[in-house]
Write a protein that binds this DNA or RNA. Structure first.
Lengths: 217, 217
DNA sequence: TAAAAAGTTTAGATTACCCTAAAAAAATAA
DNA sequence: TTATTTTTTTAGGGTAATCTAAACTTTTTA
């Protein structure tokens, strides 16, 4: 069984390795987990002994199949709890993360299965992030242009047009791969969209831009 | 802020001092918490420094007003979570303790207020134990003879007749102060009761006995 | 009430996690 | 390609919670 701390490291490493097949570096983990590189080195050795990651000195860390499975059950728990907090307890979208961060460490497989059922087996959390099923698989959602997601919440997965000027524009307004967008409204006169990013900043996006951002619901 | 471990000690000390105004002894705590007396001594000093208990060497420990307040918020959380698990997730009465033992340590006052509201501000958990309100007060329930609690769940508070033979009989069938009884049925022909003790053992109790056991709903 | 037993505390280790400072390796720049 | 900078690891400690064994109090028993 994993400790609270080991679970946090593993989850973080999973998220950091999500984009790209490259090894995750010590400093990245330290930054993400708000700790010192020396502490990361210690923990990373422990996780390697337990076969949850492959660790090569000075090179970095890769998550193993077994580690991925563990990480996915933690993520499943996190997202189910977030869904519960918003849907059942009436929390706001932005208030749930810290509490879910604690709840994800509760150990009880039965609890999670019952919670899943109680929530009606949701496939995404309130941010639009997919919830893995009990075998660690998520439903692969089809990518659609943001322009087709009126009124919905969606996660940015890719861009069609990857010209520097477009990417620059996106980063300027705060849109990035993985961002959670809520498409609040479509303007009739020019088909521009009003969107909310990560439950916070609201911005307007032109028709052109909205057709070049690919999202999953 | 208290650690997970400090919370467990405090809650245990609260429960042990519940019956009687005597000091709680090191060995009692060690027994209850499944640890060694030496460890208890260490922790008890820490809690005393934080003014949660009064500790006198070789004599024992008494919980302070401040300690009581802390203990009651933990107990409130525990009992609200137990109620949630049974009422909303469909757990059985007997399955909830271990999970609630974990959930009671989640830190978020807002979560607890929202959970309380979601559950309809219950005044007792599924075992019949009263749930303190957010100021640590519980509704003082009136004591009634068990004979008047047909179909209900109730906690044993006292006995009217305290003859040794009656007490002996009670302990033999498994009824004790604090036990949680569910009165399943009343037999028509002799007014005896079928009861379930702590969600486990089912026994029959005579009319005489049922009139001499005082309970709160 | 003195001796034995029971209960409690202290001393000294252990484990998990984290830290700082210094050493070592890898990446970058001149 | 050597020197400099950056990154990572090692060495050595610190704190929280636990333990065993030995020392010390208190209670019980004879």
């Amino acid at each position: 069984m994993l400790s609270f701390t080991e679970e946090n490291y593993l989850k973080t490493i999973y998220h950091l390795s999500d984009s790209g097949a490259k090894a995750v570096l010590t400093n990245e983990i330290a930054e993400a987990i708000q700790t010192k590189p020396a502490s990361v080195t210690d923990m990373v050795k422990k996780l390697a002994i337990k076969n949850l990651i492959a660790y090569e000195k000075y090179y970095g860390v890769k998550i193993t199949r077994q580690g991925k499975t563990e990480a996915l059950t933690i993520i499943r728990k996190h997202r189910l709890w977030e869904t519960f907090l918003v849907e059942k307890l009436g929390f706001n979208w932005g208030e749930v993360h810290d509490v879910a961060e604690q709840l994800e460490h509760i150990q009880s497989p039965l609890l999670i299965e019952k919670l899943d059922e109680f929530l009606g087996f949701p496939s995404a959390d309130p941010h639009g992030h997919p919830i893995p099923d009990k075998n660690g698989k998520f439903k692969v959602a089809r990518q659609i242009p943001l322009a087709e997601a009126i009124g919905k919440k969606a996660i940015v997965r890719a861009v069609k047009n990857s010209s520097p000027s477009f990417l620059d524009y996106l980063s300027k307004i705060g849109v990035y791969i993985g961002a959670s967008l809520h498409v609040l409204a479509k303007m009739d006169f020019d088909a521009s969209l009003e969107i909310q990013i990560d439950g916070k900043k609201k911005v307007y996006i032109s028709k052109e831009a909205s057709e070049n951002i690919l999202v999953t619901e």
